[in-house]
Design a protein around this nucleic acid. Structure first.
Lengths: 239, 239
DNA sequence: GGTCGATAGATTGTCGACAATCAACCATTG
DNA sequence: CAATGGTTGATTGTCGACAATCTATCGACC
């Protein structure tokens, strides 16, 4: 394919996955946004990025559009494209939406839980705690997203899965920024214990309540980070 | 601008709205899909459409991508793009998602309802019944969508509004197909009376229950249509 | 000093052509 | 006849160039 194909991909893998430059550019840009290399508010200039990736602007534009649809970028015709700015309002919306969707996901999946679901949830939880123990910031964020993503997968409800996907990137962006700002290595080790217990238990209303509580704590933390960030910025401007 | 600009648009209107060919193509294609000119399962061939619209494939591709994100088209790299196929499973997902989202929207908007909200809801309801009385199929579908859309607008929750937008096009597609198949001119005239009464009332739990009931009826109708359609198709194949 | 208009440069939107891929069709083989 | 392999034509992905638009800067005027 092209220069963006990772060296570890053989030609046959590319064929099977029918991947395009667009896909690769999306991955690269997403990673840059999440790592803070392209920070909130940063402009993305097509001509510059296309040169940097050594591709034409066609697939680059398509990649930008996809990230706009994922909620990580905003674009205005004839004007340009930026990484979204972080805001408290956004966090509130993300978390309230998470409560609604994740409750719905558990309602859909509740009777479908089986041994495989239980094993996978425990496996993902172990993976999360291992990442926290290892002090691996990036892995712990991904592990937490995967853990929460399980019920969506198990729901068998494609629209719901799509809704989770469109939320996930933004959530990851906030967590990544939060962790970077505070050298945080991930959530507290025990932060998902009651979530797991309820998710694997027999009381759906209790699980729905747990989701509300779990998200309230998460929202509080993320909002708190953001408020501090905005305060810092205001102080910075006054200095 | 270009040949796709409607004649009623003056140059200054185009400037203000910063519209692009892409936007116009989206509108045209969406209309063609909803009217059945591009029926479920129909292929969309870039070269053909670009020639037909007298534009290059660049903006045409971007428009197709947008409609993919709206859920009206599906695409596979290097292979092509089709209008989605209608399925009972899809209807179930759409309606269950609608219940969840619209309940959430009313929760968000409940305390924010004011005189303007009430007036607007009644206005939209009148508009819907007028369209039904006029036997205007297309207008009644749009009117019903607008009526349901009001609570999303009122919620002030952008993520939620985005979720509604991504559902709306699919819903419209199903209604349009249903109506075409049965020469239906829209919902029954009184079908939203109890919805309106509850939406403007003071009992949120009652409204949440009404949403469930309202959607159950809607799902039943749309599923029934689809089952009949699938049966006809099977009989057609056996004949 | 402030406002307005013109200009230039950078960037985004679109174009038409070339490269890459796929599906359909045809010929060959068992 | 069925399965396999090769070829061809149509279509999708990408390229580089031109057209359209916007923003920043500069100069003129009050």
């Amino acid at each position: 394919m092209r220069s963006l194909a990772p060296a570890s991909f053989g030609h046959s893998i590319e064929r099977l996955n029918k991947s395009t430059l667009r896909d690769h550019i999306v991955e690269r840009l997403r990673a840059a946004i999440l790592s803070g290399e392209l920070p909130p508010g940063a402009p993305l200039v097509e001509t510059v990025l296309a040169a940097r990736f050594a591709v034409s602007r066609g697939p680059l534009r398509e990649a930008l559009r996809q990230l706009v649809d994922e909620g990580l970028l905003v674009t205005v015709p004839y004007t340009g494209t930026h990484v979204i700015s972080l805001s408290v309002e956004d966090v509130r919306e993300i978390y309230s939406m998470r409560v609604t969707l994740e409750r719905f996901a558990f309602e859909q999946a509740w009777q479908r839980r089986d041994a495989a679901f239980r094993e996978e949830m425990l496996r993902r939880h172990r993976h999360l705690t291992a990442a926290i123990d290892a002090g691996d910031d990036r892995a712990s964020i991904l592990a937490e997203l995967d853990l929460h993503g399980l019920v969506y997968e198990a729901s068998g409800h494609r629209l719901l899965q799509r809704a989770w996907s469109s939320l996930r990137g933004r959530l990851q962006l906030y967590w990544a920024a939060h962790h970077r700002a505070h050298a945080i290595r991930g959530p507290r080790r025990d932060s998902h214990d009651s979530y797991i217990a309820a998710a694997l238990g027999g009381d759906l209303p209790a699980m729905l309540a747990e989701i509300g509580e779990h998200m309230r704590r998460g929202a509080e933390q993320t909002e708190g980070f953001l408020r501090a960030q905005l305060l810092d910025r205001e102080n910075g401007q006054e200095a």
